[in-house]
Amino acid sequence: MANEMQLKYGCNPNQKPSRIFMADGSELPIEVLNGKPGYINLLDAFNGWQLVKELKKATGLCAATSFKHVSPAGAAVGKPLSDTLKKIYWVDDLGELSPLACAYARARGADRMSSYGDFIALSDVCDVCTAKMIQREVSDGVIAPGYTDEALEILKSKRKGTYNIIKIDESYVPAPIERKQVYGVTFEQGRNELDINTELLANIVTDNKNIPDDKKNDLLISLITLKYTQSNSVCYVKDGQAIGIGAGQQSRIHCTRLAGQKADNWWLRQNPKVMALPFKADVRRADRDNAIDVYIGDEYEDVLRDGEWQKVFTEKPEVLTVEEKKAWIAKNTDVCLGSDAFFPFGDNIERAHKSGVKYIAQPGGSIRDDNVIETCNKYDIAMAFTGIRLFHH
């Protein structure tokens, strides 16, 4: 390992020179095994690694995340997949999946539109099953603590041999103080070393005080994901995986709506009509994802009009009506929701309820906390005040 790495350019091609380096003279904690990762790739890699490392520590399960532009599009732990999830994640032809492969299938599958061209982080040594899954997805690179020999060879064959493969020293501990420059001014702060655990969920302020252990796990996944998501942000989680992340919005209600729509889309992909869409055999996964996204949205005519549906389907599908969508979304229940800062008004709870939210973790501290709690009580939602803000910039 070296002390520095020269990069082709920074965020944009005109931003030269560019490099990463260790200011204290020590060696970089990474080794590039293949490819030439760029500036944004490495930002995604280091943020993603922290996320999966903390998910594994908090849950005891292997973890994966799919990063795009310094925010996660998805994050998950390695719980087995149902036959339905295998089908909507396009992995039902891969046979038995390892826990790590399940984690990545979930992380990638939560929001496949946003995960297109992602940078992947894995908490554990990449195995052959996970490598084969990554091999056929459009992705910029992967970071992990190691790779089996066969997995490494599979990944090296990707993108005509240029796929970015990074090995990180999992024993590396960064300095307690971090710095960044903006407009020539250096900013300094202590690293956010907050240990996110179930103790943060002890202060349940609603009438409903019951948060089962598996839902506490989901709330931890939500909060840890938010710790590495550009603020403002909220995260919907179900059964060990993020299903909707609303990142980088100035308004919290817009975060809640954005993430809620993503969660609804994830659930709508499991609707029998959607799962039975008659795709042509030669339509690629990315094009199927795009067609599904349009089909379940408000602009469904863009994929169903004459001259368009013939490009992807063998026959014209029936419309998934507004009434059908509402009825299907109403079946999604027991969803968990985390927020990186307090909900200022009850409207966030109203929107979350529409996407099946039953459990919430947020800092609290709004002058309208009473209104937020009252709205939760109206829907029998259990909400914990963590007392901790999780802004990330």
Results as ranks from 00 to 15, higher is better:
D83Y: 15
D169C: 03
G60Q: 02
S66P: 05
K79L: 15
S66L: 01
A144Y: 03
I166L: 13
K79I: 15
P99E: 06
L94C: 12
K68N: 14
K180C: 14
L85Y: 12
A131S: 04
L61K: 15
V91H: 06
D93L: 11
S98D: 11
I88D: 01
F187D: 00
T65Y: 13
M113I: 13
L122K: 01
Y89A: 04
K180M: 15
G95H: 10
D169Y: 01
C129A: 10
Y116I: 09
K156S: 08
S115G: 06
I120Y: 04
C126L: 07
G141M: 10
A63F: 07
V142N: 03
S82F: 11
A131Q: 00
D111H: 12
L85S: 08
Y104M: 11
R108G: 10
E153I: 12
R108N: 14
K160Y: 09
K156F: 06
G161Y: 00
G95Q: 09
E170W: 04
A107G: 09
P174I: 00
E137D: 13
I143S: 03
P80H: 08
G117W: 08
S123K: 02
K156A: 10
T148E: 12
I134D: 01
I168F: 08
R136A: 02
K79H: 05
C129R: 02
V77K: 08
T59C: 02
E153G: 11
